[in-house]
Design a protein around this nucleic acid. Structure first.
Length: 741
DNA sequence: CTCCTTTGTCTTTTT
DNA sequence: GACAAAGGAG
């Protein structure tokens, strides 16, 4: 039973206000998630609401997972029945049931950004548009924005008739949608778009969901865009028990369509809305909070508020400036070592940065100093070539209409089916209708495919075989089957390079993920697996408990907190980024500032900021001065490094522009090229094993067995195990994740 | 049809 | 500097 007296007055007010629209303006660290979870508990325990009728929507999977955990901890019975999910997965679940009404198959595919780009390229080709005139990115952004505004291709064309460039983009949009539909695929934006469309055209279905979800909560409301707002407003339209929680100062996703008006105008749309402000911060020391307040006051477009805390002043904020990014990384690594020696565990520390690219150097130095770390984000595991290839096999087996996936794998591994053959089949598809895979199945009828027919047959036979297999075996067996029969595994094994080994490791990791899915899903099936993978940004928190420093971008740090935070790369031109400095409009700079505010307020006890005077960008040295955000913090809250690191004490950046960029000798130092790194085995984690020859061990897939040999090799161990079910297998300790029995 | 070299673009950030 | 896409040789 939840103890509501642990909450402060405002939090209690938020918990007790259950009916009607409610806006909670929750500053950083003000116990926002706590208020929501207690509110859920209150609804169930005190109001007798069925957990089945409560919905909580978040933006990221991380946030959803965390809320799930906290609700489960707080509500012993029925908590697991509360619908807690991201916008996107909520929509997918709805669409899986009803999308046939909109003319799609239920087993539609979800396209990620890479897929989108490939499809856009096809549109360019079909429409004979030169990407030099309109960069693909621009078109993609424009289309995405249109979708976020709930504009169809027709709407978009109509609105932009007079603008030549935009009407071209309109054509692309139209073609793009046509192809998505032909492929039975939806992109991320479509998930929201189609769900709203479904509700619009089928009010009877909307009503089902209105009846079901009588109490709705939306977290990080400041990051919602137009279509998400429409979605929420529709579902909450009948009972109007809508509680949104947000902080306009933490709105950092405007670039992807987040509409700050959603929070600023909430009271206009829901005129009877109650507003509760949470302004007491429980997270940070006085100094950190003051610094954050000082920085954010420089923004003009915001609701007035000032966070306060009863916490002690704490240590001052450390700022240190280094010669280069390597020095900076080394400085951070040394500091971490020193802190660790003082008894601060590594998992209490986080290094945050503006762009993913900055993580490389940091990684390198942490490696050098033997500091264990974990990186969030970056190159998505599921975007790796080998992983994507195998996923495309699964996609084709599941949804044969996905031409993009067919194209990708038809010649992987090499089967001697080249571009010309594929283009001929595509041509035939254009003329006859149907999909690429159909054309391949009818290769003998397709003009110009005679020579390749036998090879194509080899591919289509495989697909048939896999489909048969999919019908009778488990997903992991199917996966193994693909790996074997296509010769994919063999090809990598024969390569005998470290990179190929890492790729094999990643495929093992994918297999683990599949097994994991099979064990946890209610009714595991191929569509479900692919959906989960499409919507999960990454395999996060697979193993949380290891003591590691965490590295991530400021964006992914939102919603998290750490005792000790390092903000790296505090330089003009990097953070705030060049684009935002040069922009006419100050709003871009304000978004960067909010991002900085988010970064500062992640810290509980100490905050370290650092920057480099010289940094390699695009292969050339760039000089920059300290970030204006550092200078916006009054000196009284700051403490500078051993040399005089006061930002203003610097005379070298005399220019007015802030960033002097020139081709200064690139000063190539002997830094080693980072080897292709496997996700499954971060290189710095010395592999330790707790089993020996003769021990009984358990493997996630192969089951139980006995260790017969352990051979040290490189930075890993090659372990031979005799499994009861599958016989003798050799594997690398770091991939195999063997558990001693 | 495949492999290799060259060229160009990129740095925001996530589902 | 890193990676993908395009172009050219075998």
């Amino acid at each position: 039973m939840a103890d509501y007296t642990e909450l402060n007055q405002e939090q209690q007010a938020a918990v007790h206000h259950t009916d009607g629209p409610l806006l909670i303006l929750a500053g950083a660290g003000s116990g926002k998630t706590r208020a929501i979870t207690y509110r859920i508990a209150w609804l169930i325990e005190e109001m007798g609401i069925s957990p089945y009728q409560i919905m909580a929507i978040t933006f990221t999977n991380k946030a959803a997972d965390e809320m799930r955990q906290r609700v489960d901890a707080l509500v012993p019975f029925g908590g697991d029945q509360v619908w807690i999910a991201t916008f996107h997965s909520t929509c997918v679940r709805i669409l899986r049931r009803h999308i046939e009404l909109l003319g799609y198959d239920r087993n539609f595919t979800i396209y990620d950004t890479d897929d989108q780009k490939s499809l856009i390229k096809e549109c360019y080709k079909a429409l004979q548009i030169d990407p030099k005139n309109i960069p693909e990115r621009a078109a993609m952004n424009e289309i995405s924005n249109a979708k976020n505004e709930f504009l169809t291709a027709e709407d978009y064309c109509r609105e932009n008739q007079d603008d030549f460039r935009k009407s071209r983009i309109g054509e692309i949009y139209r073609e793009y949608q046509k192809r998505l539909r032909a492929n039975n695929a939806l992109d991320f934006d479509d998930l929201l778009f189609r769900a709203v469309e479904l509700f619009q055209f089928h009010p009877e279905i909307l009503e089902q969901y209105q009846e079901r979800f009588r109490y709705i909560m939306v977290d990080e409301y400041q990051d919602t865009n137009r279509i998400q707002f429409l979605f929420v407003r529709m579902i909450a339209g009948k009972y109007r028990n809508l509680c949104v929680v947000g902080d306009d100062d933490q709105s950092i996703y405007r670039f992807r369509g987040a509409d700050i008006r959603n929070i600023l105008d909430f009271e206009k749309v829901f005129s009877d809305a109650a507003v509760i402000k949470l302004e007491q911060n429980y997270r940070s020391t006085g100094n950190i909070l003051n610094a954050a307040n000082e920085v954010i006051t420089n923004n003009r477009g915001r609701k007035a508020k000032r966070l306060w805390t009863e916490n002690a002043e704490g240590q001052k904020i450390r700022y240190r400036e280094f010669e280069s990014e390597y020095d900076e990384a080394e400085g951070i690594a040394r500091e971490l070592k020193a802190m660790n020696a003082r008894g601060i565990p590594y998992e209490d520390c986080a290094i945050l940065y503006r762009t993913n690219a900055q993580s490389r150097v940091l990684e390198e130095k942490l490696l050098l100093y033997n500091i264990p770390y974990r990186i969030f984000g970056g190159v998505n595991f599921y975007q790796r070539k080998e992983v994507k290839d195998l996923l495309c096999y699964l996609k084709v087996i599941d949804n044969g209409r996905d031409d993009l996936a067919v194209r990708r794998i038809v010649n992987v591994p090499k089967r001697g089916i080249g571009m010309t053959s594929i283009e001929r089949a595509a041509q035939y598809t254009q003329e006859q209708g149907g999909n690429l895979l159909d054309a391949l199945f009818e290769a003998e009828q397709v003009p110009g495919l005679k020579r390749a027919e036998a090879k194509i047959r080899g591919f289509t036979d495989l697909i048939l075989e896999f489909r048969a297999r999919a019908a009778e075996s488990s997903l992991s067996e199917l996966f193994e089957d693909i790996l074997e029969k296509t010769g994919y595994r063999k090809e990598l094994e024969q390569e005998q390079t470290e990179e190929a080994l890492a790729r094999l490791g990643n495929l093992d990791e994918l297999l683990n993920k599949i097994v994991d899915y099979e064990e946890h899903a209610d009714e595991p099936d191929l569509s479900g697996l692919l959906e989960e993978i499409a919507l999960v940004a990454d395999i996060d928190n697979l193993e949380e408990n290891r003591s590691c420093v965490v590295l991530m971008t400021l964006h992914s740090a939102k919603g998290l907190e750490f005792p000790h935070v390092f903000l790296s790369g505090m330089e003009e031109g990097l953070f705030p980024g060049m684009m935002s400095i040069l922009a006419e409009d100050s709003s871009e700079l304000e978004e960067e500032r909010r991002l900085c505010y988010v970064g500062i307020t992640r810290a509980q006890k100490t905050l370290h900021m650092s920057g480099a005077r010289r940094r390699m960008v695009h292969g050339e040295s760039r000089y920059s001065k300290a970030s204006r955000f550092v200078e916006e913090i009054p000196e009284e809250y700051m403490e500078y490094g051993e040399q005089d690191d006061r930002p203003r004490a610097r005379g070298y950046a005399a220019g007015s522009g802030g960033t002097l960029s020139g081709k200064v000798s690139s000063g190539k130092t002997g830094y080693f090229k980072k080897p292709y790194q496997s996700y499954a085995m971060p290189l710095n984690q010395a592999v330790s094993i707790d089993y020996a020859v003769g021990d009984r061990v358990k493997h996630i897939k192969f089951g139980q067995g006995t260790v017969t040999e352990i051979r040290p090799g490189g930075r890993d161990y090659e372990v031979t195990v005799d499994f009861e079910k599958v016989g003798v297998k050799k594997m690398f300790a770091s991939f195999a994740k063997l558990k001693k029995m």
